[in-house]
Amino acid sequence: MRRLGLRIDFSQLIVWIIGLLLLALVVIGTISTLQTGKYSAQQWRDFVVFGIAQGSIYALIALGYTMVYGVLGLINFAHGEVFMSGAFTGFFLANALAENGMIDSNPILSLIAVILLSAAVSTGVALALERIAYRRLRRAPRLVALITAIGASFFLQYTFRGLYGSGVKVYPTVEILQGSVFGIQKTMIVVFIGAISMLILLYLFIQNTKMGKAIRAVSEDVETAALMGVDVNRTISATFAVGGVMAGVAGVLYAIIFKQVNFFMGFIPGIKAFTAAVLGGIGNIPGAAMGGLVLGIFESVGPSLFLEGLGIPAAYQLKDVIAFLMLVLILIFRPTGILGERLATKRV
């Protein structure tokens, strides 16, 4: 990167030019959209609010990717399925609670019950995944673990299809979450607050508990941590468990805004959350949270903001293009992600 002057790498140069062209397109599109004045200020605000709600969910899932990457250097592609398992199982409790009227008489209690169940199931799945699929492969080449992760992802998808059926299930509507405050949907607010509180809890856990310290130590240097008396296996399990809890909560939050769950629901959010983790700098916990929010907002605002300005019809079909274009741009200009890889561990 720093080879300036005569020693500019030719392929690097081309990549930079492509990157700059893409950026220029984004800028031109933005300017021309803003000039048309098609959207009101309130509509822009709505785009951002939707983006934040979606982004909070990405952020919670991304934490699972980034923490596991931090301690194991493994990209756990089955994490999207961990998310799905919790949300899908939570449906059955939510549905039962709706049928006996609990959800209307005691909405907060019911919501907590559903979240607890969902988090418990996701955690269980994440732990089992680590124990059965990854532990034996810890010393195997990276690619082996990666392929295993993809295999585990399919295994989980189709297991849950077998367990719960292949159709779409729909979460019941919670009456007190209907309507809006200051023009913002209550559900969005709940999701945002839920996600932020989980992030704060996670931060406190990582920074202030013994296990949190162990996780940080293992992610910095496994062998030294082991020599210092850290139980590595337990720590890694704890990391998966924490990732599972986050994914389980994300699953219920997802169900609050989107209602529908099915066995395939984890795939796309999983890929998006992985993107978010890389955006923020993989292995970096605040980075994952930020990456999720940035990705959510860009996906929501982007098609209207710069694709429409470029005269592209049906811009929202290209939503995913924006997400992955961002990933490409980040990898070109700042390969370690926005906040940098493993920043948190360097600070310790």
Binding site: Y39, S40, Q43, D46, I268, P303, E308, P313, Q317
Partner: peptide, 21 residues
């Protein structure tokens, strides 16, 4: 307006906001 989404999309609010304009 003639908009499009992808099969598998879940968040339609943005595209609907765009249509609302």
């Amino acid at each position: 307006a003639q908009e499009a989404v992808n099969a598998g999309d879940t968040d339609m609010r943005s595209v609907l906001t765009s249509i609302a304009s």
